[in-house]
Amino acid sequence: METDIRFTHRSIVEQCKAGNSSSQYELYSRYVDAMYNVGLRFLGNTEDAEDIVQDSFVEAFKNLDHFKYESSFGAWLKRIVINKSINHLKTKRISVVPMEAHEFHLADEEPVEAEAVDILKVKKGIAQLPDGYREIINLYLIEGYDHVEIGEILGISTSTSKSQYHRAKKKLLEIINEL
């Protein structure tokens, strides 16, 4: 099954590699909404999200030769969008909640267990989270990365990712409970 996912749209991807612009448009059409939503989740406004997604598609098409089907094209592209979004946020702001500051007392903090919550409430809750927390919640819960991957994306250790995530999740549950 996994192999099948990696080779999704392979023929279109190969045509794009050969420089076929109609295939590029086809591939773009299939992924643009998903990528736009990813960008929007991280950046919080349509303008930045559009810019980042555009840049990501340009970069992806230019570097398509480096794409060797180690993941699906969508996963590869999403990683470009996320990396660009996070870099954009880094240059734009000084982190409100510096991640490193929480590292020590979080290590022995108990992970919070919680029951399923209405998705609409989750959306509202995430929107109210501080930027740093929102990033890690998005990466883990919605984009579906594990802590090793999140560590790579954010340039932090796996354990920092875990502890940071648990703190963010706790905060999210607090917000949701108050809604």
Binding site: D33, N37, F61, E113, A114, A116, I119, L141, G144, L173
Partner: peptide, 28 residues
Amino acid sequence: DNFERHIRHNAGQFDGHKADKDKMWAKI
């Protein structure tokens, strides 16, 4: 936990926005 599982299974519901496809393609 159930909270996380529920969100991951319904991650598609977070993709509610539509991109301005033509405008963005022009730039690309």
